[in-house]
């Protein structure tokens, strides 16, 4: 007899719970657009925020709810994601320009030196707290690889003491750019293979003393640039990629080799 009561009690409690859940699942049903899930499946899921929305879920939701035609915002997913999403939404896909991350520093072990031995936590953010890092140049790459850790695609590595982007693997999600404590990394379009690989704002002589390939702010690049895309401010040259035609004249003129041009 006791076992019957026990079984009955557990069964009744279980049934009550089941009924309650069954009613609740109807009462609290949330209607989701099935397209949102389909779109979400097309996205890479890195949650990098390159599209400007809060993660892949946010972007999928925005696309699904507003039937927007901005299907080409996902840079990691590139053309494939854009095409897939466009198919689901029934719109034509716009072209996705390939973008890559660019490290504005060339201060490898051959070009610059350490000013101190550092034995602290192996992270750029930690090292920067102590006199701006252990390198002679406080503007440059610290080389502890915070960007390497954060990269979802194994596209950035510390080579000879400086971060180097693997252009083929890079999806331009911008996680490394956000992570770098010296803000050395910029996302640019891949079709402009010219870059000022320096962010040193010290006067020319000081900058040059600390690093062989520093920008010394000599203005030569600004003068030779046919489109006026280069400006020198704070002893540092900057390229405006909107105007740049990637002719390579600046790299030829640069006396220190801080501007790099790869055809």
């Amino acid at each position: 007899m006791p076992i019957i009561i026990a079984t009955a009690v557990v069964t009744v409690i279980g049934l009550l719970c089941a009924v309650m859940l069954a009613i609740a699942s109807k009462a609290f049903e949330v209607k989701t657009n099935p397209k949102i899930q389909q779109i979400r499946d097309c996205l890479p899921g890195a949650n990098c925020g390159a599209c400007g929305y809060a993660g892949c879920d946010g972007y999928a939701k925005a696309l699904g709810e507003n039937e927007e035609d901005r299907v080409n915002l996902c840079t990691p997913g590139a053309a494939k994601a854009a095409a897939d999403i466009a198919e689901i939404l029934g719109v034509t896909a716009a072209e996705v320009t390939k973008k890559v991350a660019l490290v504005h520093c060339n201060g490898s072990c051959d070009n610059t030196e350490k000013k101190a031995d550092y034995y602290g936590g192996q992270s750029c953010h930690a090292a920067k707290l102590i006199y701006g890092g252990d390198g002679k140049c406080v503007y440059g790459c610290l080389g502890f690889g915070d960007c390497v850790t954060v990269c979802e695609y194994d596209a950035i590595h510390i080579v000879n003491g400086v971060a180097k982007v693997d252009v083929d693997s890079c999806t331009a999600c911008g996680l490394c750019a956000k992570k770098c404590p010296n803000a050395l990394i910029e996302i640019i379009t891949a079709d402009k293979p010219v870059a000022v690989k320096c962010r040193n704002k010290d006067k020319g002589a000081v900058a040059r003393k600390n690093c062989k390939v520093a920008c010394i702010g000599c203005m030569k690049c600004q003068k030779v640039c046919p489109t006026g895309a280069i400006t020198v401010a704070d002893n540092l040259s900057t390229i405006d990629y909107e105007k740049c035609i990637a002719c390579g004249a600046c790299a030829e003129a640069c006396p220190t080799g801080s501007i790099v041009f790869k055809k």
Binding site: A24, S25, A27, F28, V30
Partner: peptide, 8 residues
């Protein structure tokens, strides 16, 4: 139940 309630 709580999860369903919160979702809604």
């Amino acid at each position: 139940l709580v999860e369903m309630f919160l979702k809604k």
